[in-house]
Nucleic acid binder design. Structure first.
Lengths: 246, 246, 246, 246
DNA sequence: GTGGTCTAGACCACA
DNA sequence: GTGGTCTAGACCACT
């Protein structure tokens, strides 16, 4: 039996740390303008030396994700990594194949997650999911400032928390990890499409939550399926619609 | 917004290499008795120095996975990692929760994989899947030597190739990766349950293959679902049946 | 090829700042009794925080160069760093070797500076040089108060401005820098020798200025050479003359 | 008296270290292909930690001056920092004003150095200067390989050692420092002009050495003056001559 | 009390 | 025995 091994790559610790932080930003755990914990605390949490953490920060600064400011009021500030509107469609189009696969992957795992969550969610799970849902609804309800870039970031963050909350409520570590991975790999700026261009596209959340709350597994799975399909359709429509964009 | 980061761990290169090889063994790419490529070639393929590779091998030897033999006929030989029959049930029972989650995860991803594979499989995909299927059927058909430990390993290897082949035929990298991950995390010795105790349990493969070959997506998904459910049921039955074991 | 590197030393910022200020004092840009700019302004000019500036000031106070006085009329006051007459000769003698080298260095660079200045000086250059010359002549002319310590400082300051003006008029940054370096390294109190003991020694300045003004490069170079040689001779005479001192 | 202070800059230690090494390379103490001392030794010599040294090395690698290679035969290798022939003239032209000033500065200090060296050189000084001279003559004599880039580097290195040897023989630290500074600031690739385009331009060295050896100060000064003027003339000719270059 | 830098020592990967 | 990386602790500069 002939087999061939691919090359392994040694990832320096600072790379791992950078990826870790990048992941947190990607999941919306920090919003633009937020400060990451102070270097010393962060290094402690991550279990690495400050030297290594700082090397990771230097990398993130190079990517324009964070900025480190000195002084008493300083700290690690998360930057707004927004894509200019006129480049957004091109950037999404260039990775649409990838995104389509990702949505298939999400469909498989998040539907399962919704089904299990409807059966197994704890009160605490419900509380978290509900809180994220309310954050989303508050943002969409406050129609005033949809163009504020931070609004998009805040909505994306709540959206992410909602879906990850359901994944966690599935009480299945493998599925939860898969859902998180999918969100991390998501191209962040597509949040703009939903918030700026189709703010109504995100209305399946309430139906999904109700199904999970009432423990209706089949409905939860269906709601999740519809929601994700709808999202993908919105994205596809955005790309194909030459009249409404720009 | 308060958030906390978990610790990152630095994996030495030799750990990564060991994991890489362990994975190949877990997926049945090498059978007990097979030889891994010579050290020099392997180091080259992996892109690491022989020093590091040797350290990885030392670790694998420590786990009893491989053995390095000197001399002209020597090399890195894959060992038979069999669990004694009298410990098998206990070992499976102790990690049954984990296995159940794993099966839920497989269900989500492999059903999706089957559905997409039915639509997208190429001739080459079909050839690979078919070849694995035939290997399984040949082993089950040759009733003579079900107790031979290598038979179990050979069956497990073919089983793995069958499922991974379908995953690959789904033409979705995320799903394929998830399926592979699930197989890697599978507790290897459970192969014995199916081969030794319930050799008939693995009869869903042909139905699955036919559905994929004929491009019947719904049937493929259903067949995969039934197959995995059945497998889990077999396992559950094995654990609960106090009469037939030992 | 075998080579060895010497040690590098890390200079703290406050050291750099202190040296910067010390240099300004050494060049006579501030006279005893003058006030340096207020701390806040100075810190701004220097591009450092007040904390660092204050540390530098503390060092300068330790050397007796400045004194910081509180209150409405306070500020950073430049002190008179005079050497008592009875120690002057000993101090000069102890570093005479160094001074001799310095005069050789000045000879090389200031003669070149004079030559180029005669050819390249602008009207503005001439104005500055002339102004410094007049200040010197006014001080030497006003015979009354040669013993006043500030007179010496004022003369030294004008002398410095005269020579640095010529260096600048040479329109050669390297030479100008070398001349300034030489003046900074000069042992400040030797000004006393010329003012107190040989007030006539400084009469080459007018000849030098005329040559530069009329654009006579050869004469300028010769005048500068004679002037510096003469100065050194005065110093040497002062040290050798056992009768006239003390 | 109104005065304004310029900003001071805090130079991190690794910057100082980088400058230190850059200086050694600029002075030709190391030739392309040479290895710098091992990191540990170098850090010790420089009196800094390896961390800091490595940061400096990273900077130098970024500038393309050195390359660090791993393994038993590895080390810090000096790269050949050559300018392509077709860019050389433009690069020299763009900084010709600066170079002209530099030559004036060299004229002032190196003539003085030659004069003092003729009077004060020790036997050891003569030995060093002579050795450098012989290296130059050997390279110019071996006409075969003037186009080899390392030949230029080797000549430049010997040239530098020759002039710095004279500066040191002047027994005047200020002048020696000024000469070294001038060489460090020299635009390195101009060595190509003398070696490739006008290999005969460097024949004043022997006359200069003889004068210093015989202790003829006036002749030494004159020889140095002629030599530097000639070098500048060669450079000027190279820039103006449109026919012979490219 | 923040980020910025340096140190001394250790272990790892490489050839 | 080379360069590559990480650690723990310290001090400095900034606001």
């Amino acid at each position: 039996m002939v087999q061939s091994f691919g090359p392994v790559r040694h990832t320096a610790t600072y790379e791992v740390v950078a990826e870790h932080i990048r992941r947190a930003l990607q999941l919306g755990r920090y919003l633009p303008g937020d400060k990451l914990p102070p270097e010393r605390a962060l290094a402690l949490q991550l279990g690495v030396s400050r030297t290594v953490l700082r090397e990771a920060i230097r990398a993130l600064e190079g990517e324009g994700l964070v900025e480190s400011r000195r002084g008493a009021m300083g700290g690690l500030v998360v930057l707004n990594n927004e894509v200019p509107a006129d480049q957004l469609k091109a950037m999404i189009a260039s990775r649409f194949d990838q995104l389509e696969q990702l949505y298939e992957f999400r469909l498989a795992n998040e539907c399962a997650a919704a089904r299990f969550a409807a059966r197994r969610r704890t009160a605490e799970d419900l509380r978290k999911i509900s809180e994220a849902l309310q954050r989303m609804e508050a943002i969409v309800g406050g129609v005033a400032e949809h163009n504020d870039s931070n609004t998009v970031a805040r909505f994306t963050s709540a959206d992410s928390a909602f879906h990850l909350g359901i994944a966690e409520a599935s009480r299945n570590g493998f599925i939860a990890q898969a859902v998180e991975d999918a969100w991390v790999r998501r191209f962040l700026p597509i949040g703009n499409v939903f918030m700026r261009i189709e703010p109504d596209a995100n209305n399946g959340h309430r139906r999904l939550f109700d199904a999970i709350e009432t423990g209706n597994a089949a409905e939860a799975e269906a709601a999740m399926g519809d929601h994700i399909q709808e999202t993908l359709a919105t994205l596809r429509g955005y790309l194909n619609d030459r009249l409404r964009t720009r």
